[in-house]
Nucleic acid binder design. Structure first.
Lengths: 200, 200
DNA sequence: ATCCTAACGCTACAGTCGTCGTGATAGGAG
DNA sequence: CTCCTATCACGACGACTGTAGCGTTAGGAT
């Protein structure tokens, strides 16, 4: 019943319908009813298994996410961060906007929120070697906080494209990567450099 | 009819109902019907004037936003950025979460999206003197891009609290401010320091 | 004081969402 | 091969959305 049986077939049908509808009509028209009609699976079945549109997108993400992903290794911190940011930039400006759709859905669907959280958590963890290599090359201090550096490098991209809805400009990824690399080189993300400060 | 008349009274009634319902039941249960019942204003009237929930939240924001807002002036760049970030942190962790609700709504309502965009655009523009003062004090290079610096300082907050949904930790604002200030001091956000780089 | 018009109230409607109870069926276990 | 159960199909339901038409009213203008 589980692996090769009816359930698996239904799931494949539904997820295929989601992807197909996503490329044709985008995220806004993505409704449970549409997917049910398109896949030939009944409404209530889709509701029972996926709860809402967010659940559907979450399942599409987890299915599409290759967990073989490896961070870049260009030889310099800035190069690595640039490569990461270009990948994010591509995902956020892609068509169909699956990532953006999932982000939008995450505000209404706990399933989508969890899937996104898990995805990002995994990716940031996998990027940690980028920082380690930079430390090994003595580009940045040894006590640099990897997570904080990676957040600083990538956050401007998300902020500009997702929240501020700024027009996509191709130099954005490299700029953010450069700025974060300079900051790290100057010793910004070290635990020692932030706690003693307690200005008014 | 306009300023002190019926329209203004209706608007006050509805917006008060929105705020009240927001503090009691949060964003999820915020529906047009609820607001109509609560305010005593008819459904169709609410739909006509505000279109959807996003329109309501947008109006609440514009009404609540004092356009007398001034950026901090603590005497140092890091101090100013910290003050700004603490304000953002407070807004994003506030209860009721009006800002978060508006961000969520902005993905479904053009009105909410526009209101947010206008709000942020205004705030970032008003923060520009912070960077100018830092330049005047010779803390950072004169060709520092103000917008880029401000984005870098504030983006990690939004990213962590809104998208990554990380647990709120009070040192976040100061950390991000510190890191951005160090980056700016090291000459990160200058136009000259990013264009020549074109590494593999 | 009287008109005039913008704004509101009301009813009705079609569409979507999400859930529930009931019956049918596929496919694994014995 | 037969049973047993998880899963699906079906129909119906209440709630919310968003719109349209039409009557009503408040309040500014002359």
């Amino acid at each position: 019943m589980r692996p090769g049986g009816r359930s698996a077939r239904i799931r494949a049908l539904v997820l295929a319908a989601v992807r197909a509808d996503l490329v044709e009509h985008g995220y806004d028209s993505l409704t449970i009813d549409t997917i049910a009609d398109r896949s030939g699976v009944h409404r209530t079945t889709v509701y029972r298994r996926w709860r809402d549109v967010g659940g559907l997108l979450a399942d599409v993400l987890t299915e599409a996410t290759a967990d073989i992903w490896q961070p870049p290794d260009t030889g310099t911190l800035e190069g690595d961060l640039s490569a990461i940011n270009r990948e994010i930039y591509t995902a956020l400006t892609a068509d169909p906007p699956i990532t953006t759709a999932l982000i939008a859905a995450s505000f209404r669907s706990p399933d989508a929120a969890r899937a996104l959280q898990a995805f990002w958590s995994d990716r940031y963890a996998r990027c940690r070697p980028v920082v380690d290599h930079a430390v090994a090359r003595a580009e940045i201090p040894a006590d640099t906080d990897p997570h904080r550096l990676l957040i600083a490098a990538t956050a401007p991209l998300y902020h500009q494209l997702v929240l501020l809805r700024a027009p996509a400009s191709p130099e954005l990824p490299d700029q953010a990567a450069h700025d974060a690399a300079v900051a790290a080189t100057a010793g910004a993300f070290t635990s020692s450099s932030t706690s003693p400060r307690r200005s008014a």
